[in-house]
Nucleic acid binder design. Structure first.
Lengths: 239, 239
DNA sequence: GCAGAAAGTTAGGACGTACTAACTTATTTC
DNA sequence: GAAATAAGTTAGTACGTCCTAACTTTCTGC
């Protein structure tokens, strides 16, 4: 028998390129780790033409990172999921580090992490995490995957879904738009704050809120991005 | 007159790709900022085929980063030099930061910085520098260019050139090979140490040295990479 | 000053990633 | 269930970076 000639591209150890890591992250985000992702949605998230996604997705499937059936969308394989989580961990540890160790505002960390995540070694990321005390969430409250690839997948309710009169602890702001983040910070709508829904206008009208003695109201679109963990109010009811 | 159609690619603001930054750094290193660099030497430093360098160098010349004459080598333009120094600053600040803020050993910083230098923003680099007290040199003693693009260009003498009996302060180790760096650290041959040449064997033989009460001897090749600032010895003579 | 060696270049091709235009498949609507 | 629409794909092309092979220019040593 002759020796294997073209070694299979499935060894799993070759470092992934930055675009590949971005595809995997996007697919992970769309399918929440396990679900399917549509070509168009991937294209939209990455700001690419759908045709480009078709091509790339096929290559990633050939490499064993995706399960792909033409016209049927795409799903991460186990190895693809692991790779996505590795990148996600890098991204979020870097965000946390920039915020805690280097004084970055929370609206600036995403952009910087978006580039560094592809360049930082695992060792660097681990040292960063250790230096700031092994954080469990990034500055927006998103959970940081562990080194061995597990994540807290708790699904929180958004402020848009909380009943009138109910209270919750803000756990996460699920968006990276700097302007939105600055606006929310101005309103004190940041992870860790206890918030109460005072009223909700119909037909997509504003939602009135209170945080401590601050009162404010925000639109429903914005509210969808604010995730809360319901807490019992004084009467013992839950949101 | 009609308006300019193909706007010149000389605007100077487009971010450079990682390979381009690497070429500029290599050319800077070879020509010490202003001198000419030969195709083969660039190729060797970047571990590329000379033919690849020929091609790339032409593109960089078209972009106004290099002055290039076929068969005659290459030289940085002012804008190329500025770009090279920007990258060099990033690289060295990152090295210093990894070492001082994250506990990296000096033999590990280069590799990590080699990737991060292409991903870190100027703001990140400036924050890193500020956090560790605006260092003037990296962990190997190499001077860090300032934000406005000036560098200390002092040329130091190497240990191989120091007279027998002369002393010097080690200012820099001009190599990035991790094994060499670990070896030198073992011998306490690191920036800041005062070192004296005890003897030098002829025909490329070993050089005997003392640092404090430590005695050691190293080969001449290694000695070339250790740069020193001569200091007057007890008799007032200089090396 | 010429032959051989060294240095450098061009030609032609590959790979990864993107694009637009044109086409095909799937889904929705009546 | 057929037509209209939405979603997805293929074909063909471009760009940046790299390669090898073959060629040309420059340098060196006699």
């Amino acid at each position: 028998m002759t020796a294997a000639r073209a070694q299979p591209r499935v060894s799993g150890a070759e470092p992934l390129t930055a675009p590949v890591e971005d595809y995997l992250k996007a697919i992970y985000a769309i399918g929440k780790g396990t679900g399917p992702a549509a070509t168009n949605e991937i294209a939209q998230r990455l700001a690419l033409a759908p045709a480009s996604v078709s091509g790339m997705v096929r290559r990633l499937a050939d490499q064993g990172l995706l399960a792909y059936e033409r016209y049927r969308g795409v799903r991460l394989t186990e190895s693809g999921r692991r790779a996505a989580l590795r990148t996600l961990r890098r991204h979020r540890v870097i965000e946390a580090y920039l915020s805690k160790a280097l004084g970055y505002q929370w609206d600036r960390v995403h952009e910087e992490a978006e580039r560094l995540e592809h360049a930082a070694s695992d060792e660097l990321v681990d040292r960063m995490a250790a230096t700031i005390g092994e954080p469990e969430v990034d500055p927006h409250g998103a959970p940081i995957p562990t080194k061995d690839g597990s994540v807290d997948e708790t699904e929180y309710r958004s402020l848009a879904d909380l009943d009138v009169g109910a209270s919750g602890m803000i756990v996460r702001v699920a968006d990276e738009d700097p302007e939105m983040l600055r606006y929310l910070a101005e309103l004190s709508v940041v992870p860790g704050k206890r918030i109460t829904v005072k009223s909700r206008a119909p037909y997509g009208g504003p939602i009135s809120l209170s945080i401590g003695r601050h009162e404010m109201s925000i639109g429903p679109t914005l509210a969808t991005h604010v995730l809360v963990s319901p807490v019992a109010d004084r009467a013992g009811k839950r949101g």
